[in-house]
Design a protein around this nucleic acid. Structure first.
Length: 382
DNA sequence: CACGCGTGGTC
DNA sequence: TGACCAAGCGT
């Protein structure tokens, strides 16, 4: 890095820390000095907004107060507390990381970035965050916020994800972190990116970097960093079989073709081939009854079109599917992802219509009245 | 190393 | 309202 830039960095950093001291938002993990608590927060915050994380963080730390407690927990219980937060692999990796800390480090979270990065689920960013915030080490972080803030500050051209740009940004972040308050400096850069140096409509008038920002001097701060194009989401067609009886809903582990929800509970589901109709699918051990409708569930890279059928099982001895009955009131305590809630909500809605249409019939369906399940994905009855 | 990964908020 | 995006990681 150009040594001439050093005074500019010192000056910008001072303005940054003043901004942070005046405007830092309250967050529960900022009340803690426990490296384990910081670690949990950093993993939850990966690709996830602060406001979303807060209730999950508080519940998680109440339940698993120490790294040892987490290491000893069942994965299903860890995933149950993660349910609704998304990116469930994070929870499995955090769990594995806790076990590694117990096995390798006598249950104490290590402070050096090399040991941290060797833990499952801890990459360059999270290692730097733990080292600087929890241990006060002069280690940088580079997340999406810091990337944007620093790219604008120096008007960095080119793809910020490319190796050359990465190297420049990490080195610059390292200069910022190299001061007596590395944890605050790193959090200040992220706070600035999250509240002022926004992707669109940056609030440059309120920015502590305004005097020295190269992108602002060019008059086009929004042009930085360069944004790579994203592939449009593909469409996946699925069928889901909802089985219910007085014991609840039949839910089981995700099929091997659906590893995005590994460890989570889903109704029996099958992905359709391009030329397959939903009615062509026959799931072993089950009798399809009625098509209840379709739901669309949007993910980052895929759009799932799910045709929902009501089904009944054959004799229990003939049912080959792994799973269990989960009562409606028990759903919140289990590892139930959003997509399962959407499917069950659609089924409940459709069955409510069916039962009210045939009100005189003593349909067993009517006994199936769980509390309403929230769901924002679009649904339509057939 | 380009890609896949969940969900909810924002404009 | 749909497109964009958010304190990344592993493969």
């Amino acid at each position: 890095m150009d040594p001439e830039r050093e005074p500019a960095i010192a000056s910008a950093r001072a303005a940054l820390l003043s901004f942070y001291d005046a405007h830092r938002r309250a967050m529960p993990w900022r009340e803690s000095q426990d490296p384990y608590a910081i670690w949990v927060s950093e993993v939850m915050l990966q690709q996830t907004r602060v406001e979303t994380v807060i209730p999950f963080y508080e519940r998680f730390l109440r339940r698993f107060a120490t790294v040892t407690a987490l290491a000893q927990a069942d994965e299903a219980d860890v995933l149950a507390l993660w349910a609704g937060l998304g990116y469930y692999r994070r929870a499995r990796l955090l769990h594995a990381g806790a076990k590694a800390v117990v096995a390798r480090h006598e249950g104490k979270v290590p402070s050096d970035v090399t040991a941290l990065k060797a833990l499952p689920g801890v990459g360059a960013y999270t290692a730097g965050a733990i080292a600087s915030i929890a241990f006060g080490l002069r280690e940088p972080v580079l997340d999406g916020n810091v990337e944007r803030v620093l790219s604008r500050w120096i008007a960095l051209e080119g793809d910020p994800m490319a190796p050359a740009q990465r190297k420049v940004l990490w080195a610059l972040a390292g200069r910022f972190a190299d001061n007596p308050r590395p944890g605050d400096t790193n959090q200040a850069l992220m706070e600035l990116g999250a509240t002022r140096c926004l992707p669109a409509n940056p609030q440059c008038l309120l920015c502590p970097f305004a005097k020295s920002c190269a992108a602002l001097a060019l008059g086009t701060p929004e042009r930085f960093p360069e944004k790579p194009k994203k592939a449009p989401p593909r469409t996946e067609r699925w069928v889901a079989y909802v089985m219910c009886d007085p014991r609840g809903f039949w839910l089981g582990p995700a099929p091997s073709t659906l590893d995005r929800w590994t460890g989570m509970l889903l109704p029996p589901m099958v992905r359709l081939d391009a030329d397959q109709a939903p009615e062509e699918i026959a799931l072993a051990g089950m009798i399809r009854q009625e098509p209840l409708g379709t739901v669309t569930h949007i993910l980052t890279h895929a759009r799932m079109q799910i045709t929902v059928f009501l089904a009944t099982d054959l004799k229990e001895s003939a049912r080959p599917l792994v799973g269990e009955w989960v009562a409606p009131g028990e759903l919140d305590a289990r590892a139930i992802p959003k997509v399962t809630r959407v499917i069950l909500a659609q089924a409940q809605e459709a069955m409510r219509k069916i039962s009210s249409a045939s009100a005189r019939t003593k349909d067993s369906i009517r006994e199936r009245k769980g509390r309403a399940i929230k769901g924002s994905s679009s649904a339509s009855s057939t």
